[in-house]
Design a protein around this nucleic acid. Structure first.
Lengths: 186, 186
DNA sequence: CCGCTCATGTAACTGGTTACATGATTTA
DNA sequence: TAAATCATGTAACCAGTTACATGAGCGG
């Protein structure tokens, strides 16, 4: 294969996300990146050191990140930045056309369960929906806090992103409520 | 450890989904289950034979599924059904309280990209959003077809599930459109 | 008889998860 | 000074992905 010569090298969403985080936070440590993931209210990527550290090593080896060692007192540490190639890769990732599947319906654990709600005796179905609705209602507050935070900090696009998350949580909540009303009224 | 004695044995969403599919389709072959995943408009689980077959072997070994060989002519095949233990496990999976993270914001590739939209020169940002909006609009039609299908077939809960998917896609679409209008008008 | 779908099976890979161990620095 | 946080590192595991190989039955 040896496709070394400037190939576009399609990379995973996780890799691009890490690249993007470094772009925003640079210069930053790998630890800071793991914190960003850990503090996020999204449960999708658990991303501890075990995934981020080797991943960033890969990105550095590929020339998308660069790092220089820093010594504060006796403490060793490494500050990462994005290279110009990394920035170009990040832009290419965003540029149209996007893969069709990025718009496809996403994974939703509540929806996954909805498919099989018929296996529960009728009396218990509402309990499931009520439980889901309550938990979604709580998530609305969690997401709103993120929006407020990023708006205060002036990070417009992160605020935009969480505004989308909020709309989606609200849509899921409305959906669950409507289903409950539908199956209750008979 | 040796926690063999009737432990609840929390299993993954993928395993429970497979269990649920068998519950709906039983008796069915493993191939039929892989088809169900392949035909689904959700991109989350690619689930070819490589994942489904060993997974169903696991579920059978755990006593949640059972199978009997069938010979049509010279062709060997195996029909799977859910056991009563499997049905109980499926119900327990649905019963409250649900894990908090099931209501948490889900993975959305478009949202993931939104965080880093600032890396694109201003002129190109709208192009990204327009592309996303167009692809989401197409997905609405895809999901609507699923709703129609499951309504026609009389599978109420699958129709409910896709109704949720539709609401979410519409919410994402509206979100993307609003962002585009926001950044266009300056 | 060609090509498609049905149906089984598995071997190699890889990347994310879990789970640690280590030590410096800050804070209560 | 004890506890929490910052920061590094890695080793084992395993589940999902990819990519095949095999062959029966069926429709045109």
């Amino acid at each position: 294969m040896e496709s070394k010569a400037g190939g576009p090298e399609i990379r995973s969403d996780l890799e691009m996300t890490v690249l993007g985080v470094v772009w925003k936070r640079q210069p930053c440590t790998r630890y800071a990146v793991t914190r960003e993931f850990a503090d996020s209210p999204s449960s999708h990527w658990r991303g501890g050191e075990g995934s981020i550290y080797p991943l960033m090593r890969r990105l550095e080896a590929a020339g998308l990140l660069e790092s220089k060692p820093v010594k504060t007192g006796r403490r060793r540490s490494r500050l990462y930045s994005i290279t110009s190639i990394g920035q170009r890769t990040l832009r290419d990732w965003l540029r149209p056309p996007m893969a069709e599947e990025n718009a496809a319906i996403t994974f939703d654990p509540i929806r996954t369960r909805m498919f099989f709600l018929g296996v529960l005796p009728e009396a218990e179905r509402c309990a499931f929906l009520a439980d889901a609705e309550e938990k979604l209602r709580h998530q609305v507050r969690v997401v709103q806090a993120e929006i407020d935070h990023y708006q205060a900090v002036g990070d417009k696009f992160s605020a935009f992103a969480f505004a989308g998350a909020r709309k989606v949580v609200l849509a899921r909540m409305k959906w669950v409520r409507e289903i409950r009303q539908t199956i209750e009224m008979r």
